[in-house]
Design a protein around this nucleic acid. Structure first.
Length: 265
DNA sequence: ATGGTCGATTATCGA
């Protein structure tokens, strides 16, 4: 099974590109972030025409997550237990959605941005990650053999090599010790970054700012991750970041991240 | 020179 995650930065402005990519890349399950639309606005038909099912939860022009699958979708869940909210609950819920696809519990996550080191959104982000860690820890405690994927835009660059120039990020979010600790705590709870071994850094990124020719200059950040439970990590046979999709007019500012899984034993 | 570009909703805001 081929699993992928992609922050598409508006599904309505990107739908043709995403449908075309899904089929060409042979992706079975795609977790999408930043759909930037409400449920009724999601362009479902192009995906169903290509043989995919869609579940989406969106509320406003910023968040919105979806799961798109051609291997079936069951047990859909919006938000994780204990997930903190900010503003309208419906807007907060649009940051996390899970679906079980071919026995794998896939979480499409859009971690709060944090904005600046002094913004209250940073505390929200840290709390959000801590609650996710706690929920994840409990899932694995209840079932150590659970096949769970925590995928999406984490808005954290966990290591210095995950940004193009650490000096440029002094005093910024995404690289602060607190954010990195919150990310590593999820890893310590048992969820493994299964992409990094197949796409080692430095200089390997998943996001490049639209401004300042960042992509052309290879100046990006690695902030999109696939974290797998031990049982799922054991099935991984390969992974890649498809930076080709960041090229050209009409690209998202994020590249898709792909993980290949061996058949279930 | 502290900007630069996107996208959604309407001159801003968030990323």
């Amino acid at each position: 099974m081929r699993l992928a995650t992609w922050n598409v930065n508006s599904i309505r402005s990107r739908v043709d590109r995403v449908v075309e990519w899904l089929s060409r890349a042979g992706v079975d399950v795609l977790a999408v972030q930043e759909t930037k639309c409400r449920d009724g606005q999601f362009p479902v038909l192009p995906f169903t025409a290509a043989g995919y099912e869609v579940v989406h939860h969106g509320h406003n022009q910023w968040n919105g997550v979806a799961i798109i699958s051609r291997v079936g979708i069951e047990d859909v869940e919006v938000g994780f237990p204990g997930m903190p909210t900010w503003g309208e609950p419906a807007a907060a819920e649009a940051r996390a959605m899970a679906a079980t696809c071919a026995g794998v519990r896939v979480w499409s996550l859009y971690v709060p941005n944090g904005r600046t080191l002094t913004d209250p959104h940073l505390a929200y982000k840290l709390d959000w990650l801590q609650r996710l860690r706690e929920a994840g820890r409990e899932w694995l405690e209840q079932d150590p053999a659970a096949q769970v994927a925590l995928v999406g835009d984490w808005n954290v660059a966990p290591f210095d090599e995950d940004v193009w120039n650490m000096a440029k990020f002094a005093g910024s979010t995404h690289v602060s010790p607190a954010e990195r600790a919150a990310f590593h705590a999820v890893v310590e709870a048992g969820f493994v970054d299964v992409v990094r071994p197949y796409a080692p850094g430095p200089g390997v990124f998943t996001y490049w700012d639209y401004t300042q020719l960042r992509f052309a200059r290879r100046e990006g950040m690695r902030i999109d991750f696939v974290l797998a439970s031990p049982a799922l990590a054991a099935r991984v046979t390969g992974a890649q970041i498809d930076r080709e999709e960041r090229k050209g007019k009409g690209a998202s500012d994020h590249a898709p991240v792909i993980v290949d899984l061996a058949d279930s034993p």
